[in-house]
Amino acid sequence: MDIVVLVKVVPNIERVRFDMEKGTVDRSSAESEINPFDLNALEAALQIKEKFGGKITALSMGPQSAEGVYRDVFARGAERAVLLSDRRFAGADTLATSCTLSEAIRKLEHFDLVLCGEKTTDGDTGQVGNEVAEFLGIPSLYYVSMLGIDNGNIYATVELDGEKLVYKVDTPALLSVTKDANVPRLPTLREKLEARKKSVEIWDAEKLGGNTERFGAKGSPTRVAKTVVPKEEGRKGSIYRDVKEGIDALLSVLEA
């Protein structure tokens, strides 16, 4: 079973700082890491590989400065990592990102499954997976909260509002897993050391056929016109340090 895992490198969301004046993110304020939701996709790939054999390829689009983070991808069990990096890929929205990723997947010799995370902590759209599936013309399942393997078949459980659906997965397919699908294991020291020997393949626009109209900002129908910092309006902000006084105040509010 050859598996492509889509991983994005993002700033650590718990540490990153915001420029409240400008409404932008100061990416230098936090170290980069693999999007935490994608670690669940990588773990799912590993569990499938353990049962079926095959190869895991991590695929990512982003700046080359992220190369270091790929050590982690190797340490966690990927045989191969491909980084799509080119100035012409910059400024991509989800459509251009998905188009670029799917072109790259077509360039791989063979794949059975594409796995991705539920969403990225920086883009936070949860759109890229299904857009990739559509571009590749393969079926997909989103919000997969459990993957089971039985008798050589893969079963995916999808949880929608108030309902649980179990599908038998035929390949090729794209599956987007949630954080509930598994607990990503930590790489061992030996795996980390081994990972140092491997290197990331960098692919540019030419490698993808050079249809640059569809990549990056040019291929992106949406754009951010501006960003604003939301005001916390109308909060009363009555904070009581005296517990008794606070309780009396709350009780009269709660009564209303």
Binding site: D93, T94, L95, S98, C99, D124, T125, G126, Q127, V128, G129, N130, E131, V132, A133, E134, F135, S140, Y142, Y143, E159, L160, D161, S220, P221, T222
Partner: peptide, 23 residues
Amino acid sequence: ATKFGRALAPRIAASLNAGLTAD
């Protein structure tokens, strides 16, 4: 932006080559 809607819209967007904004 229900789970169903958020899974469906990207497929429509990609098939039409159209822009999609989430949530």
